[in-house]
Design a protein around this nucleic acid. Structure first.
Length: 828
RNA sequence: GCCCGGGUGGCGGAACUGGUAGACGCAGGGGACUUAAAAUCCCCUGGGGUCAAUCCCCGUGCGGGUUCGAGUCCCGCCCCGGGCACCA
């Protein structure tokens, strides 16, 4: 018997697939399209198990949809700008471009060895000028629309990566990439105005409900952080200045007893100007400013403040309100100033206690009476307004509206919305990224590079010393002519955040070679949106939010009509070994290449799909993969054993002429088709689909002896079973499937075959097991014909031998009959 | 603190809208084949009732509840993972 030799088989089919251009697609208006996309990798050097899992899941989806008759776009490429390449240059003296290219070549080989159904003709690499020139063009268009802009602002700086970071890229006060503590610097930087889309991005989440994982939606919702309230202006006494505050509690304005502003707030200088101890106060404020942001963001961090010496006027009460500078007030959020109502805000309460400021109750909860002297914490709940002028007696929710209306009439305040989301800081002080296409002219200021001069390419000869941005040191690069006036100008040396490339690559896959724009509209109109996107949860906010934003920008620039780039999202779990994420430092890394060498790609893929449902973390198990290998071998042997008998038995069998065993076989086969199809289609539960095939194989060994394999009809039935099996397995273990397909004497590839359909007649059961319970406990099981009427079921149950002893001498209170399932006899 | 997940045998995991808990795989045990081993094939395997059973009891993190019936629904807790967090 021919043994199962995955190495040989897999290489053979990979060659055949490539030669026949099996995976190459183009637009076809006759067919429904399906865009299946997995997050493309950063070419770090080697594929790891997480990639293999991600791409195996995607490949099942792509191949399955293809067999279901869809025109499937399934591309792959490289997110190839990024720091590791540059760090390799600094450390080993190899140019980032070379390092990247070599990694891509190696990893591409690895992916090919796994047999994924990618259309490699569409491969893109984001570090190529052919790619990033379009990003530069879009940047300029964004600049013209005011969606890209430069401003001086306090920004996150990573000392180890030597560059600034966007907010989303700071995880718990640390750099997302290297874990270094982030410091705040005041720098002039480029931003994308993502906040202009805050409301739309939030609204859009609603449409994704049910198609994206709940937790991703919540994370984005939290990140955008919308809060509704009001903005109020307070006149500063003795100054011709106003302080604006944002509050979610306009209903508490009568309880304001002081005001807090951020140390960074520009008005601070004016507020303290006339303070008798100006120098001392100034120093104190400087001290607060210098407190590290990561510490200041901690809730446990001590709340500190200092009186500025100035007062403002509460427009509702005309009371004088002292103004403090406080370390807990964030300049970046809201208006950088807060009205303090200690009776109804815990943080203000603590501050008031510390500095002995008055506490004024303006909301009384129902049935209780708050007394400022006795309060141990702020009351932040609902209630009735007291001491609140004309608003006294109102329910606080009602009062919010009334007070906003009043302010709007009087003109010192209005209803307002605030977001936690901040603009996306996209400039990076690094070499290996897309250059930001502007020049600085002493006469004309910031001038965009004209489209005809794009792309602005990276100079090859930059020095990688590890100090500063290499681009600054390349004179030919920095030296430029102003496109407007022709005078000598300085080129921008910042490059773009690499998340910009990954924010639109899915569009580029639709027309990867297009040289007249980022992508061809008709092609993108055909393929987009991505029907199924698959990747890690770590991009819940970062990449997935940026892409949603960028798609809307492209829409507003006229490139597409689409709002949302990804229709459905699947976030797969991590691959774990011994309870921890695989990592070099823990020494628990399993290398895909080793596994492929030992078992073949099909087994590796099968195990990753079988060991857990896709969204859950997966425990790598050496015995587990062994089991999958055994399964394939076992199946292989069974088929090989009968291949000569069934090979020629082509054509339909006559059901009536089948042996009982063969009838059973056909029935089971159709049930399997039904099960596997449902598991893939409805829930992507590949693990249970594979389990069903394993079960089916166990059945094959069982039914084997009951088949009459000298009968032509039985042979046909078995052959049919093998064919169906090959097709059902094709998305999971494509090489194996094609090998069997061929061994059965068929032409072509399983991928080109239509997905098998179950025949409802064969799936119908004649008999079924009904459980008989007494008081909810299973006491007996009976075999009965399907759809037996309730009355009959009831009688059979009541007369069942095993049931008698449970109901003898008892009162039958009632009998519940669920046809085909259960009879429950309630006795007392 | 708030918001999402999740908690089922020795392990990974099944159980669709409440209706046979533990599919499938791993690990373990027994048997067949073999001079022997590996491989393979067959059987057993949640805990307990001193053997067995087509017998009985218990059992899906804990405590209550709804229901003829709860892993599944409701209320209150505990634990694990993740996100947000001085956001005004």
């Amino acid at each position: 018997m021919k043994p199962y030799t995955p190495q040989e088989i897999e290489e053979k089919w990979q060659e055949k697939w490539e030669k026949s251009r099996l995976f190459n697609v183009k637009e076809d208006p006759q067919k429904p399209k399906y865009y299946c996309l997995e997050m493309f990798p950063y070419p770090s050097g080697r594929i790891h198990m997480g990639h293999v899992r991600n791409y195996s899941i995607g490949d099942v989806v792509a191949r399955y949809k293809r067999m279901r008759g869809f025109n499937v776009l399934h591309p792959m490429g490289w997110d190839s700008f990024g720091l590791p390449a540059e760090n390799a240059a600094i450390k080993h003296g190899v140019h980032p471009a070379k390092w990247t290219e070599e990694n891509i070549a190696f990893m591409k080989k690895q992916l090919k060895r796994l047999g994924f159904s990618y259309d490699w003709d569409r491969e893109i690499s984001t570090c190529e000028p052919e790619y990033y020139r379009w990003e530069q063009k879009i940047f300029i268009e964004m600049l013209e629309k005011g969606l890209a802009y430069k401003k001086k602002a306090p920004v996150n700086w990573c000392e180890r990566c030597h560059t600034v970071l966007a907010n989303e890229q700071v995880i718990g006060g640390k750099c997302w990439r290297c874990g270094e503590e982030v410091v705040i610097k005041d720098l002039e930087q480029w931003f994308f105005r993502i906040t202009a889309y805050a409301e739309e991005l939030l609204e859009g989440l609603k449409k994704l409900k049910g198609k994206w994982p709940e937790r991703v939606l919540t994370m984005q919702e939290n990140w955008i952080g919308k809060s509704e309230g009001a903005e109020i202006e307070f006149e500063v006494e003795g100054l011709n200045e106003k302080i604006r505050v944002f509050t979610t509690r306009p209903d508490t304005v009568y309880g304001i007893t002081f005001m807090s502003v951020a140390p960074e707030h520009p008005i601070v200088e004016k507020l303290i100007k006339n303070h008798p101890e100006y120098e001392k106060v100034k120093q104190e404020i400087e001290r607060l400013k210098k407190q590290p942001k990561s510490a200041r963001l901690m809730e446990s961090f001590e709340k500190e403040g200092i009186f500025t010496g100035s007062y403002c006027i509460n427009p509702f009460t005309q009371e004088r309100v002292p103004i403090f500078v406080a370390n807990f007030v964030l300049y970046e959020y809201g208006t950088g100033a807060v009205m303090a109502v200690p009776a109804h805000d815990q943080r203000d309460f603590e501050f008031a206690k510390k500095y002995n400021l008055p506490i004024k109750v303006v909301i009384q909860p129902e049935g209780k009476s708050l007394n400022p002297e006795e309060m141990e914490e702020a009351y932040e709940g609902e209630g009735i307004l007291v001491n609140s002028g004309p608003f006294t007696g109102m329910k606080n929710e009602e009062a919010k509206k009334a007070i906003i209306k009043y302010m709007e009439e009087k003109g010192f305040g209005k209803g307002a919305v605030s977001y936690r989301l901040k603009d996306w800081l996209i400039s990076r002080q690094r070499y290996w990224g897309a250059p930001i296409p502007v020049v600085y002219c002493p006469e004309c200021g910031i001038v965009p590079v004209p489209e005809s001069e794009l792309p602005v390419t990276l100079p090859k000869n930059a020095p990688f010393s590890g100090v500063g941005n290499p681009l600054e040191q390349v004179e030919e690069f920095v030296k430029a002519r102003c496109p407007k006036c022709g005078k000598e100008a300085k080129r921008e040396t910042d490059t773009m955040d690499t998340f910009v490339e990954s924010s639109w690559y899915f569009f580029r896959f639709c027309s990867p070679k297009y040289d007249k724009g980022p992508f061809k509209k008709e092609e993108a109109d055909y393929w987009m949106p991505v029907d199924q996107y698959i990747g890690g949860i770590e991009h819940a906010v970062l990449h997935l939010l940026y892409s949603r934003f960028y798609t809307r920008v492209l829409r507003d620039l006229g490139y597409t009509e689409l709002d949302e780039p990804f229709d459905a999202l699947l976030t797969q779990g991590m691959v774990i070994k011994d309870g921890a994420k695989m990592s070099k430092s823990l020494g628990n890394v399993v290398d895909p290449d080793d596994m492929i060498e030992k078992y073949g790609a099909d087994t590796v893929r099968l195990f990753l799909l079988f060991a857990a449902p896709p969204e859950r973390d997966l425990d790598w198990s050496d015995q587990g993969i062994d089991g999958c290998f055994r399964f394939l071998n076992r199946l292989w042997r069974f088929i090989q054993k009968h291949i000569d008998e069934v090979k020629e038995a082509k054509g339909d069998f006559e059901p009536d002429k089948l042996s009982d065993g063969a009838k059973e076989l056909v029935k089971k086969t159709h049930k399997l088709i039904q099960k596997v199809t449902a598991d893939i289609e409805d829930r992507f539960h590949f693990n249970t689909a594979i389990a069903a095939v394993m079960e089916y194989l166990n059945f094959l060994y069982d039914v084997e002896s009951r088949l009459e394999l000298n009968s032509e009809e039985d042979k046909k039935a078995l052959r049919d079973a093998f064919e169906k099996l090959a097709l059902l397995l094709s998305p999971f273990v494509p090489h194996f499937a094609d090998e069997i397909w061929e061994a059965l004497g068929n032409e072509g590839f399983t991928l080109e075959q239509p997905w098998p359909q179950h025949n409802p007649e064969w799936v119908k059961e004649k008999e079924t097991t009904v459980v008989i319970q007494v008081n909810g406990k299973v006491r007996s099981r009976i075999q009965v014909p399907v759809n037996l009427p309730e009355e009959e079921l009831k009688n059979i149950a009541l007369n069942d031998e095993r049931i008698k002893k449970w109901i003898e001498g008892k009162n039958i209170v009632k009998v519940i009959v669920v046809p085909n399932k259960i009879v429950n006899i309630v006795v007392r």
